[in-house]
Amino acid sequence: MKAEAWIFVITGVFFTLVSPAYWVITNDWTGTSALVMTTFLAWMIALYLGFHASRMDPRPEDRKDGDIVEGAGELGFFPPYSWWPLWCALCLSLIVYAIALGAWWLVIIGFGLGAIALCGWVFEYYRGEHAH
């Protein structure tokens, strides 16, 4: 993780230099505040990755003598296709549309359907074809 930490350190240094320069050149509050928040985010991620990189054993890609074979094996669980994100997005769009119309009864229906869709998305790998 040291390589990733260095990438975010370089990004943090860049945004630390660019943020005050942007303020001096444009005198724009909106862009300056976005750049300052981006700076803090880059430094936060760099600090997190650097903290954990110093406390864990180096990965094969972090060592000079690391070999490709050492990184082989199980990388994790990658889910197959799922229809539940579509239903969650449709429920959210129904809620936003209902708020724009002022139809609060439709907002309640959207939240109810959204709760069902979210539960289906969360628990889809506990039953059916892809259960484990």
Rank of each mutant, 00 (worst) to 15 (best):
L35N: 02
W105T: 01
R127Y: 10
V24Y: 08
L106P: 03
G50A: 06
R127V: 11
G73S: 03
L41S: 14
V18F: 08
V13H: 04
W105A: 01
V18L: 02
Y125Q: 05
C119G: 08
W104R: 04
S93D: 14
A89N: 09
A100L: 09
T26I: 06
C91E: 03
F111K: 00
H52R: 15
L86C: 00
S93W: 13
F15S: 03
A5I: 03
V18R: 04
W6C: 12
L101F: 14
W84S: 08
V24W: 12
W87D: 00
W6L: 15
T16H: 09
V69F: 15
W23S: 11
G110W: 08
C91N: 04
C119I: 11
F78Q: 07
P85M: 00
H132D: 09
W121A: 13
G128E: 02
T30P: 09
T11S: 13
A103Y: 12
A34C: 11
T11F: 12
E4F: 15
D28K: 03
W84Y: 06
G128M: 05
F8D: 03
T11G: 15
G110A: 02
L47W: 15
S82L: 03
V13D: 02
A98H: 01
G110E: 06
P85Q: 02
I99Y: 09
T39I: 03
K2F: 14
I108T: 10
T30M: 10
V36F: 04
I25Q: 12
L94M: 04
T16W: 07
R63Q: 11
L17R: 08
G50T: 11
T38M: 08
V96L: 12
Y97A: 10
I99A: 10
V69R: 14
D57N: 12
D65K: 08
W84N: 07
F8P: 01
Y81V: 15
P79Q: 05
S82Q: 01
G31E: 01
L75C: 01
T26H: 07
F77D: 13
W29K: 10
